[in-house]
Design a protein around this nucleic acid. Structure first.
Length: 353
DNA sequence: AAATGCGCCAACCGCAATGGA
DNA sequence: GTCCATTGCGGTTGGCGCATT
């Protein structure tokens, strides 16, 4: 292997191509074809390496290039292909005549990624962001709870608590910092960077996408209602887990609540009609926390009540989306990373005056 | 008007794969 | 089988232009 021989040559031009250079290269290849790229610059009278000439031809001078903005169809196709092929840009480019791999890659990195994130979709997995993040959190949790370090802290009963004790890692970027809840375990999460989107960013984006709808509809096509379509029922507010923190369930203190819920025959009347749904939800949490198994359903069951609560409210409210997001975060006693926090808190405060 | 920040995108870089001697 | 020139690919960089402060 080793470096291309042209890389050792001196006095070769780099950087942007001048119109004169373009003309020389275009004229040469039009008349003779490119043949061996390493000999092209010499024959065309260019002070460039063959690699640079090849790139310029493929990405800019080729006559069959389409140019211009990507159409909606092209955009959809790229997303579809990326979901199937990943970052295999050259393969994706073969399905889009007149487009280069570089062009598609740039379009993806500068535009499509953000677009998907705004829609609440993870651009890497093409799944809803919250589900993806839960999966990665699940992996972390599995690693932590299976480590020798964790097992050695025998004085702590709850496996999740053990994880927290030995971990100095920051939490996932979306995990909310809680300052008013009793969930002490979450303290390890609070030192993360603020360079990634906050929970509120996601919620605001979800609100934006939902603001045109007059009645609740599934948040995304991949986000299946579970369990038992319960989010269409207005008992979201009675699910006990959500009082303190949206995601705190993951760290163990939902165990007690779920356990109580399973045995409690005095659930509020609104919930009573759907007792089986609640039991189902609670059993998933028990399954997860008690057996420390990776139950994706269990995780979603924990998070969905809060999403649905938020969703229900936003769909039936005439308030502005940002205020709805702020209200949700405030009600959940959730703090988020980044500069949005103060803004959100003040919005809620102003509203309550 | 100047400084700063930010997004876009052309081009570069390094590595892997390929093919011929 | 080995070496080496060449090609192809994907990640990254840096400069330009526009927007904001």
């Amino acid at each position: 292997m080793g470096r291309h021989s042209c890389c050792f040559k001196q006095k070769l031009r780099k950087g942007l191509w001048s119109p004169e250079e373009d003309e020389k290269l275009l004229n040469y290849i039009t008349r003779h074809g490119h043949g061996c790229w390493s000999s092209v610059p010499k024959l065309a009278g260019l002070q460039r390496c063959g690699k640079s000439c090849r790139l310029r031809w493929i990405n800019y001078l080729r006559p069959d290039l389409k140019r211009g903005a990507f159409s909606q169809d092209e955009e959809s196709l790229i997303i579809e292909l990326h979901a199937a092929l990943g970052n295999r840009w050259s393969q994706i480019a073969t399905r889009l005549p007149g487009r280069t791999d570089n062009e598609i890659k740039n379009f993806w990195n500068s535009c499509l990624k953000k677009k998907l994130r705004r829609k609440g979709i993870d651009p890497t997995t093409h799944k809803p962001l919250i589900t993806s993040e839960l999966q990665s959190l699940n992996v972390i949790d599995q690693k932590l709870t299976s480590s020798e370090l964790v097992k050695s802290t025998g004085s702590i009963n709850n496996l999740h608590d053990q994880s927290m004790v030995v971990s100095s890692q920051p939490g996932p970027w979306w995990f909310p910092a809680t300052t008013t809840t009793t969930n002490q375990n979450a303290a390890f999460c609070f030192s993360s960077s603020n360079t990634t989107p906050t929970v509120s960013d996601q919620i605001v984006s979800l609100l934006s996408s939902m603001s045109t709808s007059s009645s609740p509809t599934p948040m995304t096509t991949n986000f299946n209602p579970a369990p038992n379509n319960w989010e269409q029922l207005n008992y979201c507010n009675t699910v006990p887990s959500q009082t303190n923190s949206i995601y705190s369930a993951f760290f163990g203190n939902q165990y007690t609540e779920a356990s109580q819920n399973m045995n409690n025959s005095n659930i509020t009347p609104l919930v009573l009609d759907h007792h089986q749904d609640t039991k189902s939800w609670a059993s998933e949490i028990l399954h997860y926390t008690e057996h420390n198994q990776s139950s994706e359903i269990g995780l979603e069951a924990e998070v969905k009540p809060d999403i649905a609560k938020y969703y229900w409210r936003s769909a039936s409210s005439s308030s502005s989306p940002n205020l709805e997001a702020a209200t949700l975060l405030h009600d959940a006693n959730v703090e988020v990373y980044g500069k949005n926090l103060q803004k959100l808190n003040s919005m809620v405060f102003d509203q309550s005056l």
